[in-house]
Design a protein around this nucleic acid. Structure first.
Lengths: 301, 301
DNA sequence: AGAATGGATAGGCATTGCCTATAGGACTAG
DNA sequence: CTAGTCCTATAGGCAATGCCTATCCATTCT
């Protein structure tokens, strides 16, 4: 049983004849005859009585007609549902973001996105990069905003660069170097360091910067968030390295740009390669990249 | 979009892979690949994400899946509804019958039929033959029980002979010939005749019998039913011709068989040629012919 | 690294759906 | 009653297509 057979059946039932139906469906009359015969054979019963030169539904055909109609209209409904869902911006986006980006970067973007696409439902997952990537692989997360480049195999994910921000040394206000215009990590080689816990990729970024400056940081405290670290810095317990977006006005804290030109953090949006994005998801990604382009990459302190 | 594509789609979604689905559906993996590609192309969107060597539904595919399932199960439902309705004896039969047969012949048959097929709904239409035939042509009546043979073109209707009954002269009890074992119409040529109204085919039967006996009946009364006529005969107003099944015990009336060997009425079941009968309708027809075979064609007076 | 697994692609074959032409019935008009 | 017409069924041919095998390519497991 095929859809076109059902179409022909309905057309014949509606128009009351094979020839009339043939004109309606733009199919030759013999084709209709043939397909209805096939259908009748498959069902093991006649759908039409051919009496004289008129055609009339059998009782069975009369019973079958509404079902055939329902099938056809459901087919149409399914087809147009697909068409609709590929034009309308509806549905949900699940965006993953690492903790060192989440509080500074995402909120304003989410606000504008929700205002622009009220139908869209956005959920945010805040995890460290490897967990985000794993959830991307499993399909739970659609887009991730993380530090780039990724370590993962080059072609497993697709990266959309967003911004690159400078790194700053965070010093207690009364620190000897706190008034400097810029600073090198070498100048801090004796200071106690406050860094993020292992697992946070920004820790690697900071450690890498230290390594470039041939500094082996003395880590005396590890935390999961910058605000804790900054509080410690204010209290004069040590120094830290902070990305531009995490700078916040604090009484006891001073931020000095690192001289190292490579001391930056690049942030990008990442999607699983080969994964098709729905319209909302695509829109979200576009929203990210577009909005960022018009945003200052290095906001003043 | 075709049913087999939907089947493949569901199989792949269920089994989680083309190869697995290929084993399930007994179709080669390339065929599945091909058909899904076609489907995706027609819909203008991907249904699956092929990531690495795993396959996962896209959001759209996830939305499409229940619709595809519904279509397939509705198809199955339609198919089995047809199968069921061609095995189960359910539904309605509309049987037409002429007034000169209806009261005598049908009631016991309807009773046994209804007892045997309680699901069946039988409706009876009582009309004169030409109207019954017209309603057969329009499909309103499924089977008609009428006097045969029909005048109509030989192949328009199909006839199933049921019984052939003798004709009787109905005479007032005190009529001179009332005690005879048999009688010819010639012997009644001067009598006033009470006959059925024009349109009733038994009138033609009776008139034909008279014509054979070279009698021109003097018709003094016409009615639509035998019981009225018999009452008149009882009252001594005239004589009549009555088929065997219409004989009823009456005080003032005597029935004498006609000698004319051809003075009979044949009754048959008739269906429109080319018209397919449902199971109930077929069962009713069978019931008619079968039950009749075991019935005495000429019940004693 | 090599083997195994899974999907995509290419090419060939058989099926099939549609076409035109025509047969054959049945209704209609002269 | 016959010619004409209107309808469905059939026959035959052609192009499209669904399925197959063989193979490729990427991924994943050992």
């Amino acid at each position: 049983m095929e859809f076109h057979q059902l179409r022909y059946f309905c057309a014949i039932a509606d128009s009351g004849g094979f020839s009339r139906a043939a004109r309606l469906t733009h199919v030759s009359q013999p084709s209709l005859s043939q397909q209805i015969h096939k259908l009748e054979e498959e069902l093991g019963a006649q759908l039409f009585d051919r009496i004289g030169r008129t055609v009339r539904l059998t009782e069975l055909g009369r019973a079958f007609l509404p079902r055939a109609r329902a099938l056809l209209s459901d087919l149409e409904a399914a087809r147009s549902a697909v068409a609709e869902s590929s034009t309308s911006i509806t549905g949900s986006v699940c965006v993953g973001v690492i903790p060192t980006i989440a509080p500074y970067f995402l909120p304003p973007l989410l606000a504008t996105f929700s205002r622009r696409y009220p139908q869209a439902r956005v959920t945010v997952v805040e995890e460290i990069t490897p967990l985000l990537l794993e959830r991307m692989r499993s399909g739970a997360i659609d887009v991730a905003v993380v530090a780039v480049p990724l370590q993962a195999r080059g072609h497993e994910f697709q990266t959309f660069p967003l911004i690159e921000e400078k790194l700053y040394a965070a010093l207690p206000k009364r620190h000897a170097l706190a008034k400097r215009k810029s600073i090198t990590l070498g100048e801090l080689h004796d200071e106690p360091f406050l860094l993020l816990r292992d697992g946070h990729c920004f820790r690697e970024t900071a450690v890498a910067a230290c390594k470039r400056a041939r500094v082996q940081p003395k880590i005396i405290f590890e935390s999961g968030q910058f605000s804790s670290i900054l509080s410690m810095v204010c209290a004069g317990l040590g120094v830290s390295i902070i990305p531009a977006m995490a700078l916040e006005k604090r009484n006891g804290c001073q931020f000095v740009p690192l001289e190292d030109g490579r001391a930056t953090r690049a942030i990008g949006a990442v999607t699983l390669n080969g994964r098709s994005l729905s319209r909302v998801q695509q829109a979200f990604l576009t929203h990210l990249t577009a909005k960022i382009a018009s945003k200052p990459a290095h906001p003043a302190q």
